[in-house]
Structure formats: structure tokens, C-alpha cells
Design a protein around this nucleic acid. Structure first.
Lengths: 191, 191
DNA sequence: CCCAGTTTGTACCGATCGGTACAAAGAGTC
DNA sequence: GACTCTTTGTACCGATCGGTACAAACTGGG
């Protein structure tokens, strides 16, 4: 551990994540990873001794951590639930680059038999729980809060799918506005 | 063309489609296809001379055709828009096996650089257009009809993602009920 | 029953897969 | 500058990839 090691891991991990997002787990080959990161196999296997599986595991863990600290915790802890929810919308729009970026958790959820089922499950249920809690605190009855949270969390995933299918980021942003309206946030009616 | 040829294509195509659904395009290997179909490579390349790419192309075309005749056209042509919409919900629930089955179009939309972008685009915009038309005919203003159609089409995709992530088909069915409610269909409030 | 045409299994192709071995190069310490 | 320890590029591994060649087995029509 002379110089880099820890310091250089993060940007490399980010580049790797983007490859997984674009090609899925099985479509991500080591050659794609070497070109995307600019590192040779030697360096990659030095940083991630267990290869592809360690890479995807660390990428997923990194995503989970980011959402946890940046979105889920603020959602649950805020004393101003509306502000917390609005912050979630903004962070989400930013993270997914207004719909141009895919949700790797959602992609992995569809991909079938990964060994990360429980991790993916936790990601989505954490999100929904945190959001439901904030909506509940904002004054809606518990039952409705849970239902709205499910609607929004799944709706975000669907918006990403549709936006990507149509190559139209506007769809994603429009859906996000629709969720705000649904929660009674002031943001103007349609469009 | 002595016996089978045309007749046997369909069940084989169905088995192939299931493999694509479970593993994505890049994750679908010829060995998986041979075991899933029970056919050897020789037979597969006899039915689909251009290999994997022809298979996925025919699978997508088959899906497109099915939705077109079974859902989109009835949606647009019905004189009773509410009945047409309810029929769409039922067909959709049935097709996706109450959320246990994945939407291959949605998966391909996420998968990135496929040569089927326009086909995928058409699938979703056809769906949205047909649904918006039915909602409009049911009495909602055009602007709202378009928005609701976008909400529901993307919402279905998101419901599939979430249901698969949580291994809980109930999520999908609950979302579908929510859409019905949203359109003013009688189906009881929450749950 | 024979024969044209089809369907099938098997062997094989070069390319690429994920992963390993290891020697050369780099970098911090003294 | 010599000595560690880490990082890197390269060559190589067996396995599998998508795809082809082709002879044997099958099939219905005459």
C-alpha cells in the first residue's frame, strides 16, 4: 500500500459500473473492462483478486451505500418530510442523469439468477420503506403512504425503462413531475 | 417442407424466448438454447439459419405481433373503451403471469446497444398511443389521457422490475389494481 | 421399396471467454 | 543507489463462445 490502492479504486469502480450498466453482467467481458478502465488484466486482478464477481459485488455495494446515505437516511431522518422527499426526487434525477442512465439494481433484478438477489431486494425495500415513512410523516395515512411509496419506487424504474426505450429523457422527468403532483407538491399541472 | 418446419417453429420459438427473458441476449448461449429446446445445434441452425440474431429478431417480432393483435388493436377499435382497457389489464396480467414473467422488450431496452432500438421504441409507443386513445374515448381530456397512458405503460414496466426484485408477484397485481383505480374503475380501494 | 429432400447429431473451426503465472518496471525507505 | 514491496504488461491456460460442415437418420411421395 505505497501510493494508490485505496485512492485509485473509486474511479476505476465507477468506470466498471458504467460497463455493467451498459452491457449487463454477462455482457461485460474483461476486454471491455480493460478498455473502459485503461488498465491491463494484471492491474484489474490486482485491484479485484476475485475477478468479475468481486467487481459487480463491489459496484452493487457502492450503489447501495450511496443511496443509503444520500437518499434513504435523509428520507427517514428529516423533520421536514416534504423537503426530504423533494430532495430525494432531485438526487434521483441527478443520479440517473435525468433518465439517461440506467438503474443497475433494476437491470440485475431482471437478469435472473444472480447471487445478489437479497442485496437487490434490500435496495428496493429500503427505498420503499424510507419513502413510505416520509410520506406518512407528511400527513397521509399509513396504508396510503405504503401504497404511494410502492407506486413511486416502481414508477421510477418504469420511467427509466421507458425513457431508455424511447431515447427520451423527457419521459423520465415528466414522470418525476407526475409523482410530485401525486404527493400534492406544487409544480404545475401536466407538463 | 415435408412435415414440420412451420408447425414446429412456434413452440421452439417460445422456449427460446424464455431463455432470452431469463438471461438476456448476451447471456443466452447456444448451449443454453439447445438444452432449453431439446434440439441440437444442427436443428437450431436449420430452423434459424442466421443464428442467435435471427432468433431474437423473430422472438421480438412475435411478441410485437401478439401485443398488436391481442392488446393494441382491441384498445383502439373497441366502442366500449372501459371494457377495452379492462381487457388490456387482464391480458397483460395473464401474459406476464401476474408479474412472474419479465418483459423482454423492457429488458432489451435496458440492455443498451442492440440493433432493435426502433422495434422496441415502436412497441412502447404503440402501446401508449393505443391506451391514450382508449382513455380519451372514455371521456378524459386528451392531455390527461396521454399522461395517464405514459404513467401506466411505464408503471407496468416498473411493476415488473419491482415484482421480480422482491420475488413477489403481489406487487405487480397490486400496481395493476392501482392503475384501475386511477382510471376510475370499480375495484375497491387499497388492496 | 426406393429415392429426393429434410432433419438431426456430431465433430470441428477460429475467436474469445474468465482467469493465472510471472517477470519487468515503479515506487518508497533507508 | 540498493533493498523491499507493489503494480503492471504480457504470455498463456483450459473452457466455452457462435457458427459451419457433413454424413447418417429420417420422412413422405411415387
Amino acid at each position: 500500500m505505497t501510493t494508490s490502492s485505496r485512492r485509485d479504486r473509486d474511479p476505476v469502480l465507477q468506470a466498471i459500473a458504467e460497463v455493467f450498466r451498459r452491457h449487463g453482467y454477462e455482457g461485460t467481458s474483461l476486454s471491455r473492462l480493460t478498455t473502459a478502465t485503461g488498465l491491463g488484466k494484471g492491474s484489474l486482478y490486482n485491484l479485484f483478486p476475485h475477478g468479475k464477481e468481486q467487481m459487480i459485488a463491489e459496484v452493487l455495494a457502492h450503489i447501495q451505500r450511496w443511496f443509503e446515505t444520500e437518499i434513504f437516511v435523509p428520507l427517514e431522518e428529516t423533520e421536514n418530510p416534504s423537503a426530504g422527499i423533494e430532495r430525494m426526487f432531485r438526487s434521483t434525477e441527478q443520479y440517473f442523469q435525468s433518465g439517461q442512465r440506467i438503474c443497475l439494481m433494476g437491470l440485475m433484478a431482471l437478469d435472473g439468477d444472480t447471487p445478489f438477489g437479497t442485496q437487490i431486494q434490500a435496495y428496493f425495500s429500503d427505498w420503499q420503506t424510507a419513502l413510505a415513512s416520509a410520506i406518512y410523516k407528511s400527513g397521509k395515512p399509513q396504508e396510503e403512504a405504503t401504497d404511494l411509496a410502492e407506486e413511486i419506487v416502481s414508477g421510477i424504474q418504469g420511467a427509466l425503462v421507458l425513457a431508455h426505450a424511447q431515447s427520451d429523457a423527457g419521459i423520465f422527468l415528466r414522470r418525476m413531475q407526475s409523482f410530485r403532483r401525486r404527493l400534492g407538491f406544487p409544480c404545475g399541472r401536466l407538463q
